[in-house]
């Protein structure tokens, strides 16, 4: 439409935009398209490099073996992969019940002052840098316990997930049609049973999706684990001991001055990316629109 040729409507001569304006128009539109390409480019580069560097270092042993000392070939990150699953599981144990309960409250009863307070503190909490959450968890859990532990790491990850789960649960529950609630109440069900047995199940798919997105994001977090879960080169499933995690391992191995370790860091990064991006990508594809991201 912008390129409209000069033409006549009735007797009036209608001229199109002048050449400088047309050039400016074309230039600006092209610049926007280039900007979009430039934003997508790093993703392609990162994935390409991860595959190129990570795949050769990735074998079955990487998933099954423990880390080997420097100089010995082979070795894997089995303990770190399991450790990440344990930490994320602990975080979910902390964050999901509280988050879903709070989200339900906000959606069903949250129009008062308490609701406003909860909402705004959840927003504040979601903006707090993860390293600050790590520092606070260190003071709240590690110092009283007297040592770094899986428990502290799990709590730190839980704190990170909490605000996302609260806000997205609220959004999803609000999407449940009013008529569902009215139908339940009309049948004589008390309010709490309507919430618990009609609204919650109707929203459950969305709540599960949103929670999994929060878990996937937490699985990639490094900063809050550095001085809570610390890290561990050995096999450990104990919650009161330091535990290995994939992101911290990648960090340590990437900084180490050994080529073999750097290669394993790439492999670890590839595994972590697959874990996180695959989960969130699939979830995003299955559920077209997840409020609160």
């Amino acid at each position: 439409m912008s390129r409209a040729r000069p033409e006549r409507i009735g007797a009036l001569p209608v001229r199109g935009p002048s050449l400088p304006r047309r050039a400016w128009n074309a230039g600006l539109l092209a610049a926007c398209a280039l900007a979009a390409a430039a934003v997508v480019l790093p993703l392609g580069l990162i994935v390409a490099h991860l595959l190129a560097q990570g795949l050769p270092a990735l074998d079955l042993g990487f998933f099954l073996h423990l880390p080997k000392p420097v100089g010995e070939p082979g070795g894997g990150m089995a303990n770190a992969i399991v450790g990440t699953l344990i930490l994320v599981g602990l975080g979910a144990l902390v964050a999901v019940p509280v988050g879903v309960g709070a989200g339900l409250y906000l959606a069903e009863h949250g129009d008062g002052r308490v609701g406003a307070l909860v909402r705004s503190t959840a927003d504040v909490l979601s903006g707090v840098p993860s390293i600050v959450i790590g520092v606070a968890t260190y003071g709240l859990v590690v110092v009283p316990m007297g040592r770094f532990s899986a428990l502290a790491g799990g709590i730190a990850l839980g704190l990170l997930m909490l605000p996302t789960i609260v806000r997205s649960t609220e959004e999803v529950v609000r999407l449940v049609p009013r008529s569902y609630r009215e139908a339940g109440l009309a049948l004589g069900a008390p309010r709490w049973r309507v919430t618990q047995q009609i609204v919650l199940p109707a929203a459950s798919a969305g709540i599960v999706t949103a929670s999994l997105l929060a878990l996937a994001r937490a699985a990639g977090e490094t900063a809050p684990l550095l001085f809570t879960a610390l890290g561990n080169r050995f096999w450990s499933l104990r919650l009161d001991q330091p535990i290995a995690s994939l992101p911290v391992f990648i960090y340590d191995y990437a900084r180490a001055p050994y080529d073999e370790w750097n290669r394993q860091a790439w492999a670890g990064a590839l595994v972590l990316l697959l874990l996180v991006a695959l989960v969130s990508g699939l979830l995003r594809l299955t559920v077209r629109r997840i409020p609160g991201r």
Partner: peptide, 23 residues
Amino acid sequence: VSFVIDLLASIPSIVYGIWGLFV
């Protein structure tokens, strides 16, 4: 493209770090 850009947001920070350091 929006989907791809959203994926960019879900890449863990440490992955960006390793890319920044080695590439």
